[in-house]
Design a protein around this nucleic acid. Structure first.
Lengths: 336, 336
DNA sequence: ATATTCTGTGAGAGCGCTCTCATACCGGTT
DNA sequence: AACCGGTATGAGAGCGCTCTCACAGAATAT
């Protein structure tokens, strides 16, 4: 706000009306006579007036802003195309509204900055993506303003009665595993994600379900961390322990890519020797050869839905359900 | 700001001092007696007081926020690991400060929302990444608040005397091309990025420089758009026009990946038949086999420097230079 | 004609903070 | 004892907006 910026007051003077009337026009109140609306709008254009956000927020107690909380190592967050899509969905939902998005990548410190930000009335609500099991302070944070989680917060945070959007991780993992069995594979392993994240545990559970239902050995499990390198390492581990493995369900595409490299280095052909299925259908699944068979989740829809749900809450409407679960589909490419 | 939230006034009452004194303590003014500081801090803790941001902004005319302008198709922006790194660098620089980052992904509409946001005093400064030739309105926007560009805005926008951080695109391209020549290649083509972006033109210029200096044919040029698919298409085009090509400098890693797939499909071995060099050393260069030889630019440093420069401006200090150029290094892997 | 309801507009009191300026009080000079 | 400069504190005027309430004047009902 550089000095000289026009204010409501100045517009009012220019249009020959009161401040209140200009405010009404700016906010689209219906009870202003057409001529006055016209005069005011002319003055607004003439002065190039733009309402001051801080003043508005202060007076109306509405920030018209939403925080995106990323309780995650920032490098990892940005490296994963999945998150990119979620953010994309969020921005797309917010685009036609007056809300703006504030990025809060949480400090490793006890999130003082974040807490101050939320409690300071800078935002009306928050969106949480990528939460982990030790994120106890998220519990506190989610009490400060209306919050929608991306992914089930009950599993890892023990938070009940929260609003969240999730994908059908269990169902997706089941479908992938069933597909591998249908292909005739029997010695099927899995590479999990970071086990402090709900998506990892849910996907593992889906795999395990199907394996035991089919009467197959469900102990060929190696733990990864959702990164490509972690996937490569876990695959190596799995291969060492179960050299006769003939298929692997990997909990995300990034790790599947790492696994692919490990398998190649070990001289295993994919899918002839070992079939591989990833999860996400992110950018990491396409544009790589061989094309990765994977479980598609609509990450941008996830972001979109989260924002949509929060908008409902902020509008004072109670969403129909506190939970939205998005479907997954198996996308067949070359690796399985 | 739910009702019942403690205010400065309430803290003052609790501590038995005036509002002004509490304000001094909160803002770390040195001229408050130690006992009073203590009493006030106790009251702050007792009431769980957090200053209201809007009120602060209104009174001090400082938003303590920075806008990140992304004048780009949002999908493309997020799909490129390069941008992810830039954003990462920005958040890292901002982390220890009191500034927060506001994400403004520009609408396709004439950016009314963005303009209102900047002019509304919501932010103290702006960072622009990924600008294009046609972005005339950025010129206007960058006049509203102090702005630092990521990448030279003179080339595409004709903006002089702006603050910007860029990488040595020309130098990087030259190094890559020289390396190909050193390898004994002579029929060297290039796949450019989107020609409405400065990075694309600069990298092409670097390639062309070296080619003509070496007396080689510099007409094997195909235009891509910085996406993987675009790279694949451009490579196909190049191959059709110049079947005897023995090396390609591709203007970013994403396109190089696409080119790699095209080359594979055409039965060319990399690097035996065709050597390939990308640009960025992003996530798209590693974790793919064969490993991509590429020009490394420190994208996170770029983001960091942009934020750093803006912070200087906001502190009222004139940065030593209006321009910071970051170096590039050639990273040798398998494709060249 | 008078009473009643509407409808558009203005006055003015905040929202929670910052910051200038005035003031009370201190010890030290002369 | 009167004076001074220095320092910690308080009073109070905004910052630019929203929103309630009161109030003219027109429209409607009695």
């Amino acid at each position: 706000m550089t000095p000289g910026t026009p204010t409501l007051e100045m517009v009012a003077a220019a249009a020959g009306v009161s401040r209140a009337t200009v405010s009404r026009v700016v906010n689209g109140s219906p009870k202003v006579s057409p001529q006055v609306v016209d005069a005011v709008n002319r003055a607004i254009v003439a002065l190039n007036y733009v309402p001051n956000r801080a003043a508005r927020t202060l007076a109306s107690r509405q920030a018209m802003a939403i925080a995106l909380l990323v309780p995650e190592d920032i490098g990892r967050f940005y490296a994963d195309p999945y998150f990119a899509s979620v953010v994309k969905g969020i921005t797309e939902r917010l685009e036609p509204t007056d809300y703006v998005l504030n990025l809060l990548v949480s400090s490793s410190d006890p999130r003082h900055k974040t807490r101050r930000y939320l409690a300071g009335g800078s935002v009306d609500g928050a969106l949480v993506v990528s939460h982990h099991a030790g994120d106890r302070d998220l519990i506190e944070l989610s009490d400060i303003v209306p919050t929608v989680f991306g992914g089930d917060p009950t599993t890892m945070l023990g938070l009940r009665d929260r609003f969240y959007v999730d994908v059908d991780n269990v169902g997706g993992a089941r479908a992938a595993t069933r597909h591998l069995i249908r292909l005739g594979r029997r010695r099927i392993g899995t590479v999990t994600g970071a086990m402090d994240m709900h998506a990892a545990t849910h996907r593992l559970a889906g795999w395990r379900d199907v394996m035991s239902e089919a009467g197959l050995d469900d102990t060929a499990v190696a733990h990864g961390d959702f990164t490509s390198y972690g996937g490569a390492d876990a695959m190596r581990d799995l291969l060492a322990r179960r050299p006769d493995i003939d298929a692997v369900f990997v909990a995300n595409d990034l790790m599947a890519r790492g696994a692919l490299i490990t398998l190649g280095a070990a001289g295993r052909r994919v899918p002839e020797d070992v079939a591989l299925i990833g999860f996400d259908d992110s950018f990491a699944a396409t544009n790589v050869s061989p094309g990765l068979t994977t479980v598609r989740q609509a990450a941008d829809t996830m972001g979109w839905s989260m924002a949509d749900m929060l908008l409902e809450l902020l509008a004072g409407r109670e969403p129909e359900t506190r939970t939205r679960i998005l479907p997954t589909t198996l996308v067949l490419r070359e690796t399985a």
